[in-house]
Simulated assay, not measured.
Amino acid sequence: HDIPFHTVVSSLKRLLRYSLGSVALGSLVVSSVEWVRCILKALRRRLKGVDSTGESRLGKTVSSSSHCCLGCIDWTIKSVNRNAYIVIAVTGKGFCKASELATGLIMNNILRIGKVNVIGDVILYLGKLCVSLSSALFAFLMLDTHKYRSAHNKISSPLFPVLLCWALGYMVAQLFFGVVETSVETIILSFCQDAEEHDGEAQYAPPLLMETLGDTSQLQRLTQGP
């Protein structure tokens, strides 16, 4: 099929028509865990004001342990939700079925996905750092011009504007690279789904992707020809 001209608009229409319930269910699961975490945080703040008796120590221990466990559960649920949304967008399945499928794909290809994620996270972090530092450098060079050295527009110290530009640049880079990260995860899950449906050998992936993800047997078959 041809890619539509207004891709984002058509995807949004498809989401609202077919997958709005799945998105709402995933949001409900995440918000429920966040709600429990907020309650425990409030209880934890109250326990800090109590004297360090044996009972309060036990309460603090239970509160800290539950907070840590809920933090791990929250991270896991958010990760599963993100991958489930990707599978929903690719296959059109419901939330529960997509979560099961995404978890199975990750568990069956954990080494392959882990290798790409580690390398990708390092590259994305370096990209965010380069964008933020470039913004700070550009701000410093702009403030170092004659316009901002004159008496009317003179800036006593460029430190605060440069730090502000660095922080804003990092925030903007994090938003944009978040889209790139989601795209990378979508490509990886699509590759794994393709391999699962064809007995472990992806049929529709380009050779460069097969080489990156380590599918050497299928790569040799495609490059050598029939």
Rank of each mutant, 00 (worst) to 15 (best):
S65C: 04
S66C: 10
S66A: 06
H67E: 02
H67S: 11
H67Y: 09
L70H: 00
I73K: 06
I73R: 05
I73G: 09
I73Q: 07
I73A: 08
D74R: 10
D74H: 15
D74N: 08
T76D: 01
I77A: 12
I77R: 06
I77D: 03
K78G: 06
K78V: 07
S79A: 09
V80C: 06
N81F: 11
N81R: 13
R82Y: 10
Y85C: 00
I86L: 11
I86R: 01
V87Y: 03
I88C: 06
T91A: 05
G92C: 14
F95L: 10
C96R: 04
K97E: 05
A98T: 01
A98Y: 02
A98S: 11
S99L: 12
S99G: 06
L101R: 00
A102Q: 01
T103Y: 04
T103L: 02
T103N: 00
G104F: 03
L105M: 01
M107Y: 05
N109E: 05
N109I: 05
N109V: 00
G114S: 07
G114M: 09
K115A: 09
V116T: 06
V116A: 08
V118M: 11
I119A: 07
D121M: 11
V122Y: 11
L124G: 12
L126I: 06
L129R: 05
L129W: 00
L129N: 03
L129D: 04
C130Y: 05
V131L: 09
L133T: 11
S134Q: 05
L137M: 14
F138R: 10
A139W: 09
F140D: 10
F140C: 12
F140Q: 07
F140R: 11
M142S: 13
D144Q: 15
H146G: 14
K147Q: 14
Y148Q: 12
R149C: 11
R149N: 14
S150F: 13
A151P: 01
H152S: 08
H152A: 15
K154G: 11
K154P: 13
K154N: 14
I155E: 09
S156K: 15
S157M: 12
S157D: 14
P158M: 03
P158R: 03
F160D: 13
F160L: 15
F160Y: 14
F160N: 15
P161Y: 05
P161M: 08
L163F: 14
L163S: 13
L163H: 06
L163K: 07
A167Q: 14
A167P: 03
Y170K: 04
Y170N: 03
V172A: 03
A173M: 02
A173Q: 02
A173T: 02
Q174V: 10
L175M: 12
G178T: 09
V179A: 10
E181Y: 07
E181N: 15
T186V: 12
T186C: 10
I187N: 01
I188T: 05
I188V: 15
I188H: 09
S190H: 10
F191H: 13
C192K: 01
C192D: 04
C192W: 01
Q193F: 01
Q193N: 08
D194I: 01
E197F: 00
